[in-house]
């Protein structure tokens, strides 16, 4: 089982700051795209059993719109940009003027949301790369509209090989009147945490 016992308050604070900086830049990008004010919550850093990961976004069966990308480079991991169905509809409308519900989406709508997700996750990742001075590259992003459990489990396979728990950095954001709300999830691979910590000069001798 992965050893999380060496995590102290300081390590948690650092991971929260990673969420803060990354999602902060992404929220700024979203705010520019929508020309609206975007607020975000304090990032939640959790060490939770696999089963509970989907609970953060309404449960395993809750249908969500997700842009997923694999983080490659010095500190690999998985990143998810997750919206509920109504938020995805509103976001698309705000940015492109298209007013179709998720069920009516065709190639154009999917492609537009794909690109929005790409921009936002890209700003999260590039700010993280600047901040840590690590080489981090996004894979081509993928978009899926499906059960949260089925989608988020994609972020857990690397972790599954070393333990039964996931470390997630989850930042929720919302537009002023709550028409658009969603989450950014960063799930670092097990081997990436020591690298992240070292890049920031944080002492860490755990074998996560």
């Amino acid at each position: 089982m992965a050893n999380f016992t060496k995590f102290g308050d300081f390590q948690f604070d650092v991971l929260r700051e990673i969420g803060n900086i990354g999602a902060g830049h992404a929220a700024t990008a979203l705010s520019k795209l929508m020309q609206k004010e975007i607020d975000m919550k304090v990032p939640q850093v959790r060490i939770i059993p696999f089963d509970e990961v989907a609970d953060c976004v309404g449960g395993a069966e809750n249908v969500v719109v997700t842009v997923f990308l694999r983080v490659e480079g010095d500190s690999p991991g998985n990143m998810f940009f997750i919206l509920d169905m109504d938020s995805a509809t509103h976001l698309l409308h705000q940015v492109t003027g298209i007013s179709k519900t998720v069920q009516e989406w065709e190639e154009m709508e999917v492609s537009a949301l794909h690109e929005i997700g790409n921009i936002l996750t890209g700003s999260y990742l590039s700010s993280l790369a600047d901040f840590t001075q690590l080489n981090l590259q996004p894979s081509v992003p993928g978009l899926a509209v499906d059960m949260a459990g089925a989608i988020l489990s994609y972020g857990l396979y690397a972790l599954g090989q070393t333990g039964d728990f996931a470390l997630t950095i989850d930042t929720a954001f919302f537009e002023g009147n709550d028409q658009v709300k969603g989450n950014f999830f960063l799930i670092p691979d097990p081997d990436s945490l020591p690298i992240l910590f070292r890049s920031l000069g944080v002492p860490f001798d755990g074998d996560y």
Partner: peptide
């Protein structure tokens, strides 16, 4: 039944698992 879990049942119980992706 949760992820990476298993279970056995006898009538009239039902077994259920949610959100299978590539699992």
């Amino acid at each position: 039944i949760g992820m990476a879990d298993l279970g056995v049942a006898k009538p009239p119980s039902r077994l259920r698992t949610t959100g299978l992706g590539s699992c």
